[in-house]
């Protein structure tokens, strides 16, 4: 009953959360960007997740069938 696209949709929240945490860390460990600079990456991550979702919904998935 679960399609890959549903899986991607459900993973979007956690992935965004990881991205937010990572951006805050960039402050210290990365190139020194602060969240003021790097926030557009969050939009990109969000867009990529949405894209994956729509790609996944068009490809028939092995485990879950077609949504």
């Amino acid at each position: 009953m679960n399609s890959v696209s549903q899986l991607v949709a459900a993973l979007r929240g956690p992935v965004m959360l990881i991205a937010v945490g990572a951006l805050f860390l960039l402050r210290f460990d990365g190139p020194g960007w602060s969240i003021h600079t790097s926030w557009p990456l969050l939009i990109i991550v969000f867009g990529v997740m949405k894209l994956l979702e729509s790609v996944a919904s068009k490809t028939p998935s092995g485990t879950g069938g077609v949504s």
Binding site: N2, L7, A10, P14, V15, L25
Partner: peptide, 22 residues
């Protein structure tokens, strides 16, 4: 210094939860 790891850890745990459910 290290609080952002809480967000990352949280995200990873939740992602694992979802993968497990799947």
């Amino acid at each position: 210094r290290y609080w952002p790891y809480i967000l990352i850890g949280w995200g990873v745990l939740r992602a694992l939860e979802i993968l497990y459910t799947y």
